[in-house]
């Protein structure tokens, strides 16, 4: 154990990478099964026992398909855009703390990158996600793609503001930008969703918009835009966009958990008198369970709510969410000053 200590960050990187990549096939299966249940269908049940091998079949299908690059596209950007899609989601994942485990009586935080700008880094890197969609849509040289890309750019720009403002209240309460400090604060003073209920609601709503999930998936509204920004994409390049979407969802879930659901904290576990070493592992599992629930929540909402109209989306963002977020910040400041 002692000899492993210097390699700990690399072990964390490896574990998180495996976790990250294995989440996507699981989520595809969950998405298909949950959508089937919501719509009173059975869903995939042919490949493997109870259809559990369906994601592997899907992945093989993507790999085996012919990789078509249409003649009218801008070749370099067309290839570059899908690779850009997963990059921000992966980058953000590095700073998320997954728990604190005890090794040799020493508390070790399961977190790859420890920066003192924490949340700012997350906001900055996740704001790059819009480029993949914008480049992909422009390079496709197709009017449906372009409209999808432009919608996406406007949507992500508009919802970044309330997202930043919704976190601001929480940062003011905690007094630190570090995600690990925010989680520790919540362990001592109660979960963020109780301290900042409006902030939590705003953050969850904007997270849906930033990940382009229904009810805000105007960028790929099938009824109007064929497939939106990925209309011209096929096989593995399409799969990269798909992968990016689920990675972004996972990252958004992790952010919600850390900011508002107490991170790895399990309520009342301190008073049970368990061995601290075991508590650490239980809390890591708790973190993963919270993530799992939020991922399920994303899917649940997608198959329950209808899509917004574009003007409704913009009205909601600018006329309701931003004033609400600003009011939340001001009220938080007043309450803290009193």
């Amino acid at each position: 154990m002692e000899a492993l200590m210097p390699f700990l960050p690399y072990i964390f990187i490896l574990v998180l990478l495996v976790l990250y990549l294995s989440v996507v096939p699981i989520m595809i299966q969950v998405e298909r099964k949950v959508s089937a249940w919501v719509q009173y269908r059975i869903g995939p049940n042919r490949v493997g026992p109870r259809g559990l091998l369906q994601p592997i079949a899907d992945a093989l299908k993507f790999l085996a398909k012919e990789d078509v690059i249409p003649n009218h596209v801008n070749k370099w950007l067309y290839i570059f855009a899908p690779t850009l899609m997963v990059f921000p989601a992966f980058f953000v994942f590095g700073v998320i703390p997954f728990g604190a485990i005890m090794i040799n009586g020493q508390e070790i935080l399961i977190q790859v990158g420890k920066t003192n700008i924490g949340i700012l880094y997350v906001l900055a890197v996740s704001s790059l996600g819009v480029y993949a969609i914008t480049f992909g849509s422009w390079a496709s040289n197709n009017k449906y793609s372009l409209i999808g890309g432009l919608r996406s750019a406007a949507q992500m720009m508009s919802y970044e503001l309330p997202m930043g403002l919704s976190i601001l209240g929480m940062i003011m309460v905690v007094g630190s930008l570090r995600l690990e400090d925010i989680v520790r604060f919540q362990i001592e003073n109660g979960w963020g969703i109780l301290l900042q209920p409006v902030g939590a609601l705003l953050f969850i709503v904007t997270a849906f918009a930033e990940t382009n999930r229904l009810p805000f998936d105007l960028t790929e509204a099938e009824a109007e835009l064929v497939g939106g920004y990925h209309t011209e994409y096929s096989s593995m390049k399409f799969a990269m966009f798909f992968l990016g979407e689920y990675c972004n969802m996972f990252t958004a879930s992790a952010m919600i958990t850390c900011l508002f659901l107490g991170g790895w904290h399990v309520p009342f576990i301190g008073s049970m008198g368990l061995d601290p070493a075991i508590v650490g592992y239980i809390q890591v599992v708790a973190m993963l369970m919270k993530l799992g629930f939020l991922m399920f929540f994303f899917v649940w909402v997608r198959w329950s709510l209808p899509r917004f109209r574009y003007d409704q989306l913009m009205n909601l963002g600018w006329k309701k969410l931003i004033p609400l977020a600003l009011a939340n910040v001001i009220i938080t400041a007043i309450v803290m000053a009193m």
Binding site: T115, N116, I117, L120, Y121, L123, A124, V125, S127, L128, V130, Y131, T134, W138, L146, G149, L150, A153, A154, M156, M157, E160
Partner: peptide, 26 residues
Amino acid sequence: AEFIAAIQVLVYTGAIMVLFLFVIML
């Protein structure tokens, strides 16, 4: 200067340049 770095990406790369691209594409 991590703070400036984050703000640089957040403001210039993540917001202003998206608007630039938006206008050019339109």
